[in-house]
Design a protein around this nucleic acid. Structure first.
Lengths: 203, 203
DNA sequence: ATTAGGTTTAACCGAATGGTCAAAAGTATT
DNA sequence: AATACTTTTGACCATTCGGTTAAACCTAAT
């Protein structure tokens, strides 16, 4: 029973994840999720009372998954440059396996900015900030990184990693027209991005 | 009459633009657009037969508007560095006035990747490419730009400019938590981004 | 004043959608 | 086998939504 339970609920959850990520909250249909999970629509409401509830469960799971991917940046004991290389390699690899996540997340943040504030509440950026600073204090003399430009740098790094996936349709289209392959472009990007950023910040 | 015509149709179009950009195709409601334009819902269908037709009109207008903003990069007679500075200054300024466009465009591209291919059909990237190369042939010795890395560079530049707006809700939330203001962050970004990219590509 | 044209509206329609319900089916306990 | 409980289903409901229609309204020409 409890075994079968888990199976059904899990099947629903996975189906919901697929459909929501693909169509977004507004575009997703409960019937689609049910069909995709191979069950009756009423059973959806039996396990997750409303569409909102189901969506929230999916969204939170995905958000947690993503935040987890960022964590190593603050933990790993590496030099600045090694960390940058590590980040792009791991993060882009993650996005290669989940190429639709950026578009989904960005869109849903736009649709409901309040939700994200709730998620951010439990993260103490000042602490992470200080931790990061402590880790690399000695190195910083060799780089053009100040307290002012740090947020700019972080956003730029995120942008360089995430944007190609958020704009996949567009970039894929353009690359195709000049005879290039999106997947190869992404594969090369892991190295390019790291070198690019390192060069930009080095004194 | 024809004066009033223009006024009504224009009012509808502007209302539709606002609502579509805000809610996306799936989230937008014809009734909302009608109310926003101060007219009856039936009148919407009188001027634009279907929701799809209205949406396509809005989308194409916006796409054209954006592409126009990119054009100067290929025309202006400036050095590479001046062009990069010019681009970030102008493009970010444009996004400051239209902060919701990136999210809208990216989301709709995801929803219907076929549409973008149709739009790209009329743009000949190979020609723009060559034109750009001709313009800066003499300068290129001073920069680490090759045929291989050119697409990576272009995407990175776009990413650095567009991403903060596409992820506005998220970035705003994080900046707030460390006592920073999004608008100021963006204002400073014009200069930072240019310096960052120039430093990254300089030999 | 009447006619003819486009413009605007209220009322309505059918399909789709999120959600409910009562009954059926399945399972475990006694 | 009977009982009690959970899971699953088909049928159904209320509302929302894109879209239609016929009539009212407005304006200009005759």
């Amino acid at each position: 029973m409890t075994e079968n339970d888990k199976l059904t609920e899990e099947r629903i959850f996975e189906a919901a994840t697929d459909v929501f990520v693909d169509k977004g909250m507004d575009g997703a249909r409960m019937q689609d999720i049910a069909s995709y999970a191979g069950i009756n629509k009423a059973l959806l409401h039996y396990y997750f009372r409303t569409k909102d509830q189901l969506f929230n469960a999916v969204f939170e799971m995905i958000a947690r998954k993503i935040l987890k991917k960022f964590a190593p940046v603050f933990d790993e004991n590496l030099t600045i440059e090694a960390k940058i290389r590590f980040f792009f390699r791991e993060h882009i690899a993650f996005l290669q396996e989940n190429p639709k996540l950026p578009g989904f997340i960005l869109n849903e943040i736009n649709r409901n900015p309040a939700r994200i504030k709730k998620l951010l509440k439990n993260i103490h950026f000042e602490k992470l900030w200080e931790k990061l600073y402590e880790q690399h204090k000695a190195e910083l003399d060799n780089y053009n990184i100040t307290e002012d430009t740090m947020p700019q740098l972080m956003v730029s790094i995120a942008a360089i990693s995430v944007f190609p996936f958020a704009a996949k349709g567009l970039i894929e289209g353009i690359l195709e027209k000049v005879g290039l392959d999106f997947n190869k472009f992404i594969e090369e990007r892991k190295e390019f991005a790291a070198a690019f950023v390192i060069k930009a910040i080095k004194k």
